[in-house]
Design a protein around this nucleic acid. Structure first.
Length: 431
RNA sequence: GUCCGGAUAGUGUAGCGGCCUAUCAUGAGGGCCUGUCGAGCCCCCGACCCGGGUUCAAAUCCCGGUCCGGACGCCA
């Protein structure tokens, strides 16, 4: 191991020799004194070279260093009020581990902006910026706290296939792929598989994984490859899993605030922890709000972007839309017994956009078969799925949350591509 | 996919028929400087997306393409 300390592990009073590893963030040669600012994952360290006392070779190496080259600096800590953080490193050895070409494809110091497109083309360099890094630090915190929360609540983490034989839920377009001599598809969601595990008796499962949608959408909230956070739980109804969802969202916000304070500061974000329970409005009430604001929308229509915005503005915080028309929800959403034109489906919304949708599921084999047909799908393609409903399927419910949307709405980020390292959209397939 | 806007040094920009030998910042190269911390000062380098057209003259106007941004649609 080359490194002995991260930048943040150094204190002004340390006596031992340290080795820091990182990137040459800035080199300021003042003639008689030369400053090299080294950046590692945790922060910045100033390395100071006095012309009079430093080894000539060391000075030459540092003066010839190109910005963003990778270096390992061994030296002693000098307490110095004039230095950032109250100390500087006086080097005894400087190793260039990875030379950087110049000019750089983008600026990493915050002096000159770069377009998102430019940043995505050189994402490796963009991630060196504290701003971008903060986003992915918080993304990590979110995923970690979700696992924590669900594990504590008795959920098992599962992994389901992303390569599937048949079109699954309908609704969205799938990416066809070649699977040896057959055609296959990239899965749009783990929906069917997580439901199979209810028949399997795993009782409560969750999965955090990629989903693929072949839609040609071109917006700031859609990706063709996204990350879905899915749960499915037996013996719970729609309301039960909504409670899990709102509690989870609150938990995530609290954890990010607690453990991600420095990253939030870097991003200039002040988190407001959502209050639970979230408001519940019915689909019919949602339509009413939209119509009152002059929108031409009929009961039975899906919510337009405009409606989403007006309703979001009206409510002003996270909320649920419940009791959707059965016709516009997937076949597996359970219709109410007394009024089957409505179903036990819900969407969880942020004022800006939809974050999650879920439902209590149909668990009767016959009803499920009928619903698949009623939605114009062919039950033959669902044999592997339907079979599980014939031999003892418990009532169950679940939901899926878009991880990127959760992150972007939490941080007030406008473009979903910002919160994915290597986003896949209609145009971008590389890097 | 539709509509609207855009593409100028490595990066971010100004210019929108002749004053362009194209602005500014940042950056690269060279020089001065012992306390910088977006260091400062001097010198210097580097660009009009591609193809066609209009015009005496095109970075600037028109057409097509590619790519980018935004709104909507589709969708989660």
């Amino acid at each position: 191991m080359i490194r002995t300390h991260y930048s943040t592990q150094i204190t002004p009073d340390m006596k031992e020799s340290v080795t820091i590893c990182g990137w040459a963030h800035e080199i300021r040669d003042l003639g008689g004194i030369t400053f090299l600012v080294v950046r590692d994952r945790e922060g910045l360290v100033q390395v100071t070279l006095f012309k009079k006392t430093i080894d000539k070779n060391l000075l030459e190496i540092v003066r010839n260093l190109s910005r963003e080259s990778v270096v390992a600096i061994t030296g002693t800590i000098k307490k110095e009020a004039k230095a950032p953080n109250g100390y500087e490193v006086v080097p005894t050895e400087v190793k260039v581990l990875g030379k950087a070409d110049s000019p750089l494809p983008m600026d990493t110091t915050g002096k000159v902006d770069a377009d998102l497109d430019t940043r995505l083309d050189v994402r490796f360099m963009d991630v060196r910026r504290p701003y971008t890094q903060a986003i992915f630090r918080i993304r990590h915190l979110i995923l970690k706290s979700i696992r924590e929360y669900l594990d504590n609540d008795g959920f098992l983490e599962i992994t389901t296939p992303k390569v599937v034989a048949t079109a699954t839920e309908g609704g969205t377009a799938l990416f066809p792929i070649t699977y040896f001599e057959r055609e296959a598809f990239l899965n749009q969601s783990p929906q069917l598989f997580k439901q199979l595990m209810m028949s399997g008796g795993l009782d409560r499962v969750f999965e955090i994984g990629p989903i693929f949608r072949a839609e040609e959408h071109d917006t700031r909230k859609h990706l063709n490859e996204a990350t879905s956070i899915d749960i499915e739980a037996s013996f719970l109804n729609n309301e039960d899993v909504m409670v899990i969802l709102e509690n989870l969202v609150k938990y995530i916000y609290m954890k990010v605030q607690e453990k991600g304070a420095t990253y939030l500061k870097t991003l200039g974000v002040e988190l407001k922890i959502p209050e639970i329970p979230f408001k519940r409005i019915t689909y019919s009430e949602a339509i009413e709000i939209a119509r009152k604001n002059g929108e031409k929308i009929e009961w039975g229509d899906d919510l337009s972007t405009e409606s989403e915005h007006t309703i979001g503005k009206t409510i002003g915080e996270h909320y649920f839309i419940v009791d959707w028309p059965s016709k516009i929800k997937p076949f597996y959403a359970l219709p109410y017994e007394d009024k089957p034109e409505l179903c036990r489906a819900f969407d969880m919304m942020h004022p800006r956009m939809e974050l999650s949708s879920g439902a209590q599921r149909v668990h009767s084999y016959e009803m499920l078969r009928d619903r698949i047909e009623a939605q114009g799908l062919n039950p033959d393609g669902f044999e592997f799925y339907l079979k599980a409903f014939k031999y003892g399927m418990p009532p169950h419910s679940g939901w899926g949350v878009g991880a990127e949307r959760l992150l972007m709405t939490m941080l007030g980020i406008e473009n979903i591509r910002e919160v994915v390292l290597f986003p896949r959209d209609r145009k971008r397939l590389s890097p």
